[in-house]
Structures are given as structure tokens and as C-alpha cells.
């Protein structure tokens, strides 16, 4: 049984304002991705586009307790995490649209959102590849004697990659300030986790002596509270942490895959979507605690939709990259001697 309002005007120790902000931001992530879905359907967005719908509490609750200068690294299902880290929705949407105003100048697309100003370090397309990268950021933090934290998101399927295990061992040996977060949505594409995994996600860090925990990833307050504590421990030099965030993907693996299929039934998706929506869950608790009315929610949603629409309009009116951009960003410095490019197009 969860407690409801602990004292008047608050919820489980969070002030009304804090909780409303969480709700607002999660709504924002949801509306943003619904627009991405739309953009994909009408061909404005192409390639692979993986939505985080249903998993928003992980973006909000994990990243919320971080400081602005803490690093966040993720995989390809990263739009909402980029937004949670403070990236401008207009630039993220423009990246999905492949426009020059996009956060990666239109070169990266949905899977490669990066925002160094917000310490959002991607946006990586190879399953598990971001795990050593986050470990390296942890290394750099320790090397420079900073008190930052690196947070590494990955899907459940990534824990079967060698790079994951190698990274955890190194992080433990060198006591690096990294929080490894597995968003366990139960499936890697069309494969249920347990079909290809010998042990539970939660057990995966035990062999390396990294403290492990699990949270209900649909309950943003629980996630937030848990991560607030962990971030504090890691920042104070407690070494790496490992967390399983239990969640569920409401959409298909990517926009090119069906929502359900042979690997999970329609009924399962319907049931989980109805039962476990992190936004509805929070909304209902706010209603219950009489901290929010339907009218207030409606106007919140209107605001959010308007903001998302602005991002879409910005993206849609932004120009495509100039053709000359094809050859920029391959190297950061062009050397005085020797030839760097071999397709003969510069001659």
C-alpha cells in the first residue's frame, strides 16, 4: 500500500509544485513522441525511430535528481532522456526531421541525439556500446577529481553484451562514479528477456560487487526518490551503482515494427498500457490527494501541446543541411599535409 498525501498540499514528501512539474514534463515527453510518431507516419522522419512511450517515468525520475553538469549516456531510445536532461525540444525535433537546426546538425537522426551543453552524451545505436563510454566518463570525473556523476541507460538486452560485463568490472575496480540503469521493458525487440538470459537483470552486477537495486519504473515518485538517494551516494564517492528500472514499452520496438506480434499478445499490451501508464498513475494520485483538478490538467496539457507544436513548426520550417555539410564533421582538424578524402570529389 502506498501512502497518499503525507501532509496537506504535498504527496509522499514531494511538494505539490514538484509533483506537478514531474507530471507536466512527463506529459511533455508523451506529446513530443506522439508528434514524432505522426512525423514518421507522414514521412517527415525516416530511418529507425524508437519511442519511449510508457517508459517516461524512467527519464523523469532517474534524470530529475541529477545536477546539470552530470553526464547522461543512453542508447537509441533516448528522445525523452535528452529532453529530461534539458535539451531544447525544438532542436531534438529538428534532428528527427533531419534538418540543419537539429542538435546533431541533421547528421545523427533519432538514434543519435547529443547535447554536450546539457551533458547529454548520446544517442548510441549499437546495443551495449554506450556502457564502456559511460564508464570512460566516470573515469574522467575521477581523474579530474570532480564530484559529477555519470548515468548510463541501457535496455535489458544490453546486459548480455560483453562490453557490459567488462565495463562493470572496471567501474568496480576503479570505484568510478557511474550509475548503470537498465530499463527493463521485458523485451529486446521480439525476444523476451528470460528466453535468452540465464539470470535476472537485478543479479547482473552482483559478481562485480556493485550494489544492485530494482524499482517500479512506472511510479515516478518511487524512481525519483530512489535515484536521489543513489546519486547522493555516488557523488560522495560511494563507487558505482546498478539499478533495474522495471517498465514496459507501449509501442512497437521501433516505428517500423508492430506494437504487438508473435512475441507479445495484443491483450498483454492493452492490459499493461491501461494498468501501468506512468502519467495516468501520477495523475490519479494527484486527483486522489486533491492536488489537481481535471480543469487544471486540461490546461496543463494544452500548454504542453502548444510547446510541442512549436517544436514541430520549428523543425518543419528549418532548412535541410547544405550539401557542403556532407564533408564537414568527418575530421575536426584538416592537416596541412596529405590527403584525407579519397572519393575524388574534392578534385
Amino acid at each position: 500500500m502506498r501512502e497518499t498525501a503525507t501532509k496537506k498540499g504535498s504527496l509522499e514528501g514531494f511538494s505539490r509544485e514538484e509533483v506537478l512539474n514531474m507530471l507536466r514534463r512527463m506529459l511533455f515527453y508523451r506529446r513530443f513522441e506522439e508528434k514524432a510518431e505522426e512525423g514518421y507516419a507522414i514521412g517527415k522522419i525516416g530511418g529507425f525511430c524508437h519511442l519511449h512511450i510508457g517508459q517516461e517515468a524512467a527519464a523523469e525520475g532517474c534524470i530529475g535528481p541529477l545536477r546539470e553538469d552530470d553526464y547522461v549516456v543512453s542508447a537509441y531510445r533516448e528522445h525523452t532522456q535528452a529532453l529530461a536532461k534539458g535539451m531544447d525540444a525544438r532542436h531534438v525535433m529538428a534532428e528527427l526531421y533531419g534538418r540543419s537546426a537539429g542538435s546533431s546538425a541533421g547528421k545523427g537522426g533519432s538514434m543519435h541525439i547529443f547535447g554536450t551543453e546539457q551533458a547529454f552524451m548520446g544517442g548510441h545505436g549499437i546495443v551495449g556500446a554506450q556502457v564502456p563510454l559511460a564508464t570512460g566518463m566516470g573515469w574522467a570525473i575521477k581523474y579530474r577529481g570532480e564530484d559529477r556523476v555519470a548515468m548510463c541507460f541501457m535496455g535489458d538486452a544490453a546486459v548480455n553484451q560483453g562490453a557490459f560485463h567488462e565495463s562493470l568490472n572496471m567501474a568496480a575496480v576503479w570505484e568510478l562514479p557511474v550509475i548503470y540503469v537498465v530499463e527493463n521493458n521485458e523485451y529486446g525487440m521480439g525476444t523476451a528477456f528470460h528466453r535468452v538470459s540465464a539470470t535476472r537483470v537485478e543479479d547482473r552486477s552482483v559478481a562485480y560487487g556493485i550494489p544492485s537495486s530494482a524499482v517500479n519504473g512506472q511510479d515516478v515518485l518511487e524512481v525519483w526518490r530512489h535515484f536521489q538517494e543513489l546519486v547522493g551516494q555516488v557523488r560522495e564517492g560511494g563507487g558505482p551503482r546498478f539499478v533495474e528500472v522495471r517498465t514496459y514499452r507501449f509501442r512497437g520496438h521501433s516505428m517500423s515494427d508492430p506494437v504487438s506480434g508473435t512475441y507479445r499478445s495484443k491483450d498483454e499490451v492493452t492490459e499493461r498500457t491501461e494498468r501501468d501508464d506512468p502519467i495516468t498513475l501520477l495523475r490519479d494520485r494527484l486527483f486522489e490527494a486533491e492536488l489537481l483538478t481535471q480543469e487544471e490538467l486540461n490546461s496543463l496539457d494544452q500548454e504542453v501541446r502548444a510547446e510541442v507544436q512549436e517544436a514541430v513548426d520549428f523543425a518543419d520550417s528549418a532548412p535541410f543541411p547544405d550539401p557542403s555539410e556532407l564533408y564537414t564533421h568527418v575530421y575536426s582538424c584538416i592537416n596541412e599535409h596529405g590527403r584525407l578524402f579519397f572519393d575524388g570529389r574534392d578534385r
Binding site: G98, S100, L326, Y327, F341, D343, R345
Partner: peptide, 20 residues
């Protein structure tokens, strides 16, 4: 003579991809 992909990583933007 050779005709190949442009000597760059593949860009995402549709117009640049076509050029590459």
C-alpha cells in the same frame, strides 16, 4: 575509375544521404 559512397560516415538527413 571508381564510384563509391562518399568518403564520410553516412549522414541521416535525407538530402545528404542521397548525396553520399
Amino acid at each position: 575509375l571508381r564510384v563509391t559512397q562518399a568518403d564520410v560516415p553516412m549522414p541521416y538527413a535525407k538530402n545528404l544521404e542521397q548525396l553520399a
